[in-house]
Design a protein around this nucleic acid. Sequence first.
DNA 1: AAGGACCAGTCTGTATTACAGACCAGATAT
DNA 2: ATATCTGGTCTGTAATACAGACTGGTCCTT
Lengths: 113, 113
Amino acid sequence: MPEPFEELASLDRLVHEPARLAILTVLSACESADFLFLQRLTGLTKGNLSSHLSRLEEADLIWIRKEFSGKKPRTIVGLKERGRKAVDQHWERLEALREDTRKWRPVPNLGTP
Amino acid sequence: MPEPFEELASLDRLVHEPARLAILTVLSACESADFLFLQRLTGLTKGNLSSHLSRLEEADLIWIRKEFSGKKPRTIVGLKERGRKAVDQHWERLEALREDTRKWRPVPNLGTP
DNA sequence: AAGGACCAGTCTGTATTACAGACCAGATAT
DNA sequence: ATATCTGGTCTGTAATACAGACTGGTCCTT
């Protein structure tokens, strides 16, 4: 019984953080997305989004490619293998937890009687 | 399209934080639970658990009752109305996000073409 | 009576963190 | 020339989670 909860309490904060969870989840639905799109999607400031992306890249969860389309800079990001695994796993854990909890209901009290 | 993601990026950190999400989710499956049970469940130290519970109580999401069963102190916590709403809503948002993302697949690229 | 364990904290210190906003630099449009 | 768009870096700040020390009461053992 306690297993999924111990896991939950130690969820990977790198993935769990709302902004990054949003980014990763969006990326899991496409091959790539560009900086501006992600910024509008998440409502983050440039600086903030940039540092979140850097962290995800350092963690080897995403790749970041800088192109010039014409002379305009363009930053494109996408999921790496590890990233896809990480997001999928994260969602699975969350869902597993929720399901497990549902099965308990109704329980009057938990703890020492 | 972007709506659920803007929400996600601004998820209530009070509820989203792993330890508290675990606590709240457990509580949503029972009428009450006691301190020790929650501690073992989450693996948190006493001090840490205590402060998480305090925050949840301040936010009016849970109640905390101190009993003495015999002469042993016993701390029992449970969800308040607001708490139940908060957890349910949170999970709904997460699930909605995931569902929305699934529907997108497959999308080659998101952003300026 | 003294030592220790159990319970549920409070408090302190530390390290991490998310975030806004300032600044930067190259290119384009006015 | 000035302003704007691109995608950053850097700095400062306020909040944070967390461990571990300490408190203080009750119980049990010796």
